[in-house]
Amino acid sequence: MMATDGITNPFPGLRSFESNESDRFFGRDLQIQDILSKLKDNRFISVLGTSGSGKSSLVKGGVLPRLSKGKEEDWSIRLMRPENQPLQNLARQLAQMGKLDVPDEDAEEYIMALLMRSRMGLVQVVEEMKLGASDRVLMVVDQFEELFRYRKEERAQKSEDSLSAKFVNLLLEATGQRKVPIYVMLTMRSDFLSDCTDFHGLPEAINDGQYLIPRMTHTELRQVITGPMQQYGYPISNVLVNRLLYDLGSSMDQLPILQHALMRTWDYWRQYEANAEPMGILHYEAIGTMSQALSSHADEAFHELDEEHQRVCKRVFQALTQIGKEGRGIRRPTPLWQLCDIANAKPWEVVAVAEKF
């Protein structure tokens, strides 16, 4: 058998696939093509699905790499999340394109001023870039539902100037005109669709360019499991593949758990038997299967921390998730300095905890 030395684990675990990992992203060819076809007719695309259905991975690991390989158009793709500062994050991504006749150190501030000045601010920024005839700009807003949490915080603070509304208006105006080639693609959990009514024009835009991720077929799920292994020439037993498909069942929200179990199984197989036999059922059961792999990993990581770092860990994880009145969990992006204040810890202590997981 081939040794696995020098190769990164082909499975990402709980995180989403990135654009540079398209070579190990399998099972979504039809969905990628559907979204690219929709992009030809609509400048505002919303990729929707339940939590854990693979929205971010589909866009970052599938759609964006395929779009970049196109020969007819030259796409400048900028990826962002709203977090706690949607306008600043948008300005930063535009500044990093480096296409304005402004000193690099002043670009972000200059762009921010244009964005704040008018609803057409995004159009004005891109217009000043003087793009070529085949150039296109695509702004990808991942985890768009973060904006709704930010919106609620604005209301709680009784802010008169809604930056979340400005952000949405900039996107809508940019995709509603045809003079400047600006496109927007967002990913959002489908259970947040009703929150879109807080923003004038957003429900209509989402309805026009909506793509609801369909349930994956048995064949596609098999490709998700076997594709990355075959890509690097590593063997996996059919018994394990069938067991994984059985354990996954029909739950689309379990795809991150599947990837995490595969990542842990691969690590175990590499460590103990990579040169002896294919990755198989015994390796999978050794890490606790899909039902226990995540909790076992978390328990292992937590118990490897000393008492002080366990205290920091609890406060950090509590700070990173917010539960709404409807019982929906949503990520709460928090700067390192703020996590340090919350956990009453030094930066290196918070980083050490994060790296453990």
Score class of each variant (00 low, 15 high):
P347N: 04
N20P: 00
E220Y: 05
S19G: 00
D191T: 06
A156T: 09
M279Q: 03
M80E: 07
Q88W: 09
M80I: 15
V351H: 07
F25E: 03
D23I: 01
E153S: 09
N9V: 02
A274T: 00
C313I: 03
Y268M: 10
H303L: 11
E220L: 01
Q271C: 04
L255C: 06
Q33V: 05
D267P: 01
K99R: 15
I213V: 12
G6M: 04
V125N: 01
K40V: 02
V47Q: 10
N242W: 04
E154A: 04
E285H: 10
K40M: 10
E304L: 10
Y110W: 14
T226P: 12
M290Y: 03
T289W: 06
C340R: 02
L48P: 13
A354H: 01
K71D: 01
E160F: 11
M279N: 02
G62R: 01
T50L: 14
T175E: 00
D5A: 14
A345G: 02
P86Y: 08
R43Y: 02
R28Y: 06
K38Q: 15
N238L: 12
Q259C: 12
G62V: 06
L114M: 15
K99S: 04
R222Y: 07
I35K: 12
L131C: 02
D247G: 02
R28M: 08
L14P: 00
G132H: 08
P103H: 03
D299G: 09
G121C: 05
S164R: 03
V47G: 12
C196I: 04
H260F: 15
T321S: 10
F25L: 06
I257R: 15
A174N: 07
P347E: 06
E108Q: 15
R222N: 08
K356Y: 01
R311H: 11
Q88T: 07
S159N: 13
K356T: 00
A3R: 14
E146V: 02
Y284W: 09
D306I: 00
A286K: 14
E277K: 15
R331D: 01
M112V: 06
R119T: 11
L163E: 14
L131W: 07
Q143A: 14
R149C: 02
E204A: 14
I225M: 03
S295G: 02
Y246V: 13
L94W: 08
D5E: 13
R264M: 15
K158S: 11
A3E: 13
Q88H: 10
E355G: 02
R28A: 04
M120Y: 07
L262K: 12
V141E: 08
T4R: 07
N238T: 09
V312G: 06
R151C: 04
R155I: 03
A113F: 08
A343Q: 07
S22Y: 09
G209K: 10
L39V: 07
E173H: 13
T219F: 10
G70Q: 15
E307K: 12
A354N: 05
R92G: 10
R311L: 08
R149H: 08
M290P: 03
G201E: 06
A261D: 02
L262Q: 12
